[in-house]
Structure formats: C-alpha cells, structure tokens
Simulated scan of single mutants.
Amino acid sequence: MLTKKQLDLLNFIHRRLQKDGVPPSFDEMKVALDLRSKSGIHRLITALEERGFIRRLAHRARAIEILRLPENMGGVPAPSANQTTAAGAFSPASARPPSTPRSTPAASVLAALEIPVMGRIAAGVPIEAINQITHQIAIPQTMLSSNGKHYALEVRGDSMINAGINDGDIVVIRETDTADDGDIVVALIADEEATLKRLFRRNGAIALEAENPAYETRVLSPNQVKVQGRLVGLIRSY
C-alpha cells in the first residue's frame, strides 16, 4: 500500500516518462508535490524503490525507471533496462505489460518504424545546424506520435545530463515549430547553430536552459530562435 504522496510522485514520474522519455528532476518533483525540500523527495524515492515500484540506475544522473504500477494506475509497468529496440538500444517507450504475449520476431519488426538520424546535436555549446541524414534507425511505434514527422539526433555534450540525457544518447524528435514552456526542444540559433535545451519565454525573450549547473542559460530575442522539434523519446546503449 502506497501513501498518497508516494502515489502522487509515482504518477508524476510515470507521466513525465510518457511525455518526454526522461524522468523529472528532483526540483520538479519537489514543486509538483508542493514539498519544502528535496529531502522529502529522497525519502519518497527510497520508499518507492524499497517497495519495488521503481529502480534508480547507478552512475547516471536522474536515471529512474518504473518497474511496475499499482492497480489504480492501470498496473502497467514502465520500461525495463533489459528491453531493447529493434536497433539494439534501450528505449523508455519499448516496454509492454507482462500480460501481453511476447511478440514474434516478425511482429517486432512490424512494430518498429525507421526514421532518419540527422547527425549530432549539441547538449552543451551549440554546433553547426543539422541539415543532412547520416543513416536510418528503427524506433518502436509506441515512441512516435500518431501525427507529425519524426527524426533522431545523436547527443554530444553533457549540458542536459540532469534531464537524464547523456553524451552519446539518441534523442527522438517530433518535428514542430512550437513548444510549451519547459519543453526540451531542438533550437536553431540565428539559422546557424543547433542545440538541445529546455525552452522558456521570459519578458519577451527566449531562454534556452541547460540541465547542468555548469552551463549558463542563454537568453535570446525571439527572432534569433527557431524551434525545430520537441523531444519525445530517448534511446540509450549500454
């Protein structure tokens, strides 16, 4: 039996994993649960881990996976690190409930779609804009939105590490030119540089915020920033 706070936190983590493919930060958890300090979040996380609902992955910032959900949340487990995409990389959206029969190899192929990998994206100092396809990668259909085009980028840098996005990860992006505050986006700066950051609108300006305190937030005028897509999934190789 989970307490209300434990259930609220589990539900918040689950919803964020479904939306962004990465778990929320401890600060975001604290705000969402209206707690005064992160120590309360640490206690809730520990309690959920001890009860077998989540697992923290060692040596990775903000790496939390949901192992199972209580019945009043559908009883559907979230991703397991042992599950892989058709490309052989871990996908937060590739888990299936234990009651679902294992797919045959042919069915697994049908459940995946190939999308283009457009090169590398900087999670740190912006690099040259992405403009050419390097190869294709198979992505589970469950990770892709039913509408819109998608592409993938290889992450270079550590500025988004506290969002669970590490150097060498593959991020799955849905093409869009709009974003809500707090969304992780591919931002094109001055039509020359591309970077992966959280986007916020502040006093008529655009703030591109890292998830690593070593990097400063870049504040730019709206005409300097074009949103090229929003993060919808993450693939990691172990």
Rank of each mutant, 00 (worst) to 15 (best):
A58I: 11
A58D: 13
H59Q: 11
H59V: 04
A63C: 04
A63M: 05
I64G: 00
L67P: 00
L67I: 08
R68T: 08
L69A: 11
P70V: 12
N72R: 08
M73F: 11
M73G: 04
G74S: 03
V76R: 10
P77Q: 07
P79V: 14
A81G: 08
T84E: 10
T84P: 00
T85I: 05
A87L: 02
A87P: 00
F90Y: 13
F90H: 02
F90G: 01
S91Y: 00
S91A: 07
A95C: 10
R96C: 01
P97N: 07
P98E: 15
S99C: 05
S103M: 14
S103L: 15
S103G: 06
T104K: 06
T104W: 11
T104Y: 13
A107W: 10
A107Q: 15
V109R: 14
V109G: 13
L110P: 02
L110D: 14
L110S: 14
A111I: 02
A112S: 14
A112Y: 01
L113E: 04
I115L: 05
P116M: 06
M118H: 00
M118R: 00
G119T: 02
G119S: 06
A123F: 01
G124T: 07
G124I: 06
G124M: 09
V125C: 15
V125L: 14
I127W: 06
A129E: 09
